[in-house]
Amino acid sequence: MSQLRRLVFWFYALLIYGFLFLPMVVIALFAFGRGDNPTRWPPDLLSLQWFEAILRDEAMLKALRNSFIVGLVAVSIAALLGTAAAFAIHRYRFRGSAIFYGLTMLPAFVPGLVLGIALLIFFSSLDVELSMLTVIIAHVTFLTPVILSAVLSRLERLSPSYEQASRDLGANAWQTFGLVTLPNLRTTLIGALLFAFTLSFDNIVLTFFVTSFEKTLPLEFWGRLRFGLTPVTNALATIMVVFSIVLILAANRFMNAE
């Protein structure tokens, strides 16, 4: 590449990534602002008052707790379902295997709007009241594909000779699984769990339809926006951004670690 072309490319890439990160930077700057007008540029730095305000905000803390409960429970269930599905698909030939795979993966391709409406109709036609449980079920639908695809692709790259060797040396099926297969899946699985938790923590499109009064953090945030913009929402937004960035970086580390 000639010097000039290289320079142009670099400049363009920085421009694009500036555009990508612009919203997060703007929100963070306002969150640390002193004034209470969250839209006037530039913000008057630097103050932590809005972060302190969050700590006194009961509703937000409750929403934060709800988000953690939903995330932890949904990710755990999805981990079991996704891993079992991955092993079934990888280890066995059975009729309908491709259909089973396709259906399980469906929520990764179908927009949250569609699945949310479908689940809302489903729950109400069975007279199931919307609650944290319905939110958890909804989250499991789109978290299972994350785990399934991660575990399956790891299994496919895993040499079968390890397990073969383990069995030849006299280990039974459970020993082989616990001592050979699982340790080989560990980093992938941890990465996938962290990534799934991020998606759960961030989800609003699907949650919107199946939630009750028990709001998760994004929904609490959404509710506040209806009453106008305040610096407190910016502080909350900043916390959400930082939290998910940390999770994604961690997930990425594990998923690329094998």
Binding site: P23, I27, T39, D202, V205, P218, F221, A237, S244, I245
Partner: peptide, 15 residues
Amino acid sequence: PMWSSYIVRIYAWRT
């Protein structure tokens, strides 16, 4: 940015 804070980033554009 791909996987984080969908709602926050939409909101930021309002600002």
